[in-house]
Amino acid sequence: MSHVTDLPIWAAALVCLLLLAGSAMTLIGALGLLKLDSFYSRLHAPTLAASGGVLLISLASMICFAVLQSRWIFHEVLIVSFVVLTTPVTLMMLGQSALYRDRFEGEHDVPSKPSGEPVDPDLDNGADV
């Protein structure tokens, strides 16, 4: 049974660095969830954990197991690809439903539904912001 303390010093340093960077990034993302002031701003915060945190921590664990057991453990690849692919979908759906709800309740600081004719090309450029 190999243990994590059997790592050689270079691998240990690398794993430490990746772990700390990843968890710090996740914490910053969660802080954004706490500190930002509107829902739509908070919508950006979890992507930080999902892209940076997941990638770095999974990389750390991959390196750790590759060195310890001298074979590649590829579960992390699955985790990373899965989270990277699914988080945008969740956030997109959430943003859409929040926009729908805000419009439904008549909030004034959300853009109204763009209602231009398809033929009119001059209706873009942030007219609703």
């Binding site: 739509y40 919508l43 950006h44 992507t47 930080l48 999902a50 892209s51 990277v84 988080t87 945008p88 979908v89 956030l91 997109m92 943003g95 859409q96 926009l99 853009p111 539904k113 763009p114 209602s115 231009g116 004719e117 398809p118 209706l123 873009d124 609703d128």
Partner: peptide, 19 residues
């Protein structure tokens, strides 16, 4: 959406406008 800082909210197929 995966890029932090921008979030896709809505796209209208008719007017091709993206919010």
């Amino acid at each position: 959406t995966a890029t932090p800082g921008t979030a896709w909210l809505e796209h209208d197929r008719q007017t091709k406008l993206l919010t």
